[in-house]
Nucleic acid binder design. Structure first.
Lengths: 350, 350
DNA sequence: CGAGCCGGAGAGAGCGCTCTCTCGACGGTG
DNA sequence: CACCGTCGAGAGAGCGCTCTCTCCGGCTCG
């Protein structure tokens, strides 16, 4: 169209829009930012000009003056992977759980017009780099997913004034809002299920005991069993991987061959643990009942389908995004953390 | 430190650095951007000032004048998911394959100082939104991962001048560079393996035949078998999901109970197909050999461990990032597409 | 010894936008 | 009829940076 491309090859600017609409730049800006003090006729003209020039605001220019960027960082913080030969970045990315979190976040961030910048911190250097980036005001807020309980990033972030939300309670104390599932309540659901089925020789494959979530699942499970009159909980520690779950199950079974029920603190570990039981000649659920944790996709696909404690991961991620947006819009008071109630999903394994 | 924070609460600017170093803004800028025409003594002073003020350049301001943003978009384009009750964004995120791609991309982008912005296009509106964003110059380049062969986005992107790389060959013709594995060669590896084991009643669970990759795997497999003297390939179409693989396997087995070998066009489908065979009383690999495609993590974990055609996903993603960076640095000529050679990973299933 | 050259540094414009300040027009009031 | 308040619109500064242009001083060369 004739009105377009005053300067060849460059996208239209507000100046162009104003000229086409026959108004000042300020008025065009008012229309774009929804100011109420614009005459209806002029507003129409500006809107037409915007269409005619296919104008879209330059975020860099806007951000320069407003000090907002309309984007947030999704920071994935991982334990350093020194032992790997190939420099493999972001092992967490291949975890479907992570994908569910991303999906939930985008569900809220996208309609809010927020862009999401993906960053990984997996060693001292990258952590510094990420922090510098964040501190420099390139994003309005941060969602931090950390798999390392000793991660210094939460504390470092809490020292900046940057709005931040954590996925899960941080290992070290940091006064940042987080979103998490009630681990103890989840463990209690598992305990109640197994006991209700008449199982009494119950063990658990726990997660790494330096992670708060894993600790709470173990303690919560032990406490719930005790409340139900079952004491003396045998357990083995896995590392939240499939292989780790298998290994822990093997140890547990060797020490306690009479087990008739197992709470495995993650579905992924359960996926490793169940075959160990089967190969040892135990039928699941007839001989040994198994309850997992997460309700990941793997739970449904496993053989037999896994009875498991469901975390509403997507909902939790949505809530994280909402908490973050609230902090961004109302600076100052950090919103309270949110703890979700887990539910039990009964399938075949118990 | 005393020299910091000339203006309270705001990060240091180039002006601050210059003042602290006792030079002009221009010289400070030269040092930061590595201009060679700076006296060594001044350079030192500026570098000290940078440290003292913990200065980091404001990207918005820089981008405003350079028209570069030092960030690229990772656009995930998916078929519209109307049928879902909950607005579930980005089902692809939960696919470990996607995570591997992200990991590979970051491996190259991060050292290059490029930020990665995550975007999803899953319907007409979001596609337009994404395109507007991209066209406005908010990113220097685009990596497009599309699961929809009829996706209009590649064509739309090729009409912009924006550097772009596609993951996989696009369904519709678009003159954009892509990175992909040689599908036919992969299918040939599978055919050779099965035939070498003396199998002759060979079928295949193919992928959706509107996807080029799935087509080529089927045709490549058929062609390779023919070259080996095996003709008349029975096949069933799956949708690249686990359940779809199981369903297709069931149909295939019902029509051809005498099968002694199956090429399943993705590991995920194989994960569904193998249990169908086992439940039908076929031993794997004794009665029926199974070869998958992808060498996903699932392949190793499956029971029996899956013999599969390996795609070097991370390497391919690295290459995508490199192609993109090259386009960004040398505008004009789009680099050629790159096709990777697959390899066969022999495990237990065939 | 003076003209020309060149390396190195500073001055200053301007990228596209927002937002304050100013101004004009209009209508209601004393 | 003069005054004031209000509403809508424009003028213009300035966000932090890059980059061209200009200038200065020291060197080489005729």
């Amino acid at each position: 169209m004739a009105t377009e491309a005053r300067r060849p090859g460059r996208p239209a600017t507000l100046e162009d829009v104003a000229r086409v609409a026959g108004v000042s730049r300020a008025t065009a800006s008012r229309v774009i930012n929804g100011s109420p003090t614009v005459d209806a006729a002029l507003r129409r003209k500006v809107e037409e000009a915007i269409t005619a020039t296919s104008y879209a605001p330059n975020r860099a220019a806007r951000s320069l003056v407003t000090r907002r960027t309309d984007s947030v960082a999704l920071v994935v913080s991982e334990r350093e992977q020194r032992q790997l030969a190939t420099p493999f970045i972001g092992r967490m990315f291949t975890d479907p759980h992570f994908g569910r979190v991303v999906s939930g976040l985008l569900q809220v961030l996208r309609p809010a017009g927020m862009q999401t910048v993906l960053m990984v911190a997996d060693d001292e250097a990258s952590r510094r780099q990420v922090l510098t980036y964040l501190r420099q005001g390139h994003v309005d807020g941060v969602v931090l997913i950390s798999s390392d309980p000793n991660d210094p990033l939460p504390r470092m972030l809490s020292e900046t004034a940057l709005p931040t939300v954590l996925a899960g309670r941080p290992g070290r104390s940091a006064v940042l809002p987080y979103v998490e599932v009630d681990q103890r309540a989840g463990a209690q659901l598992a305990a109640e299920r197994l006991v209700a089925q008449g199982r009494r020789l119950i063990g658990t494959v726990a997660g790494p005991q330096d992670m708060p979530a894993a600790q709470e699942r173990l303690e919560g499970f032990r406490g719930a069993l005790a409340a139900l009159g079952v004491t003396g909980l045998p357990w083995a520690e896995g590392d939240f991987t499939r292989a780790g779950g298998a290994e822990a199950m093997r140890r547990l079974l060797a020490d306690h061959p009479g087990l008739d029920g197992v709470f495995v603190a993650s579905d992924l570990m359960a996926l490793g643990a169940v075959p160990v039981l089967l190969r040892a000649g135990r039928r699941v659920p007839e001989d040994v009942g198994v309850v997992g944790f997460d309700d990941s996709e793997a739970a449904e696909a496993s053989e037999p389908a896994l009875t498991t404690v469901r975390q509403p991961v997507e909902d939790m991620a949505c809530e994280m995004a909402r908490l973050l947006l609230r902090q961004i819009r109302e600076p100052g008071a950090a919103p309270p953390s949110v703890v979700f109630r887990p539910t039990l999903v009964v399938r075949d394994s118990s």
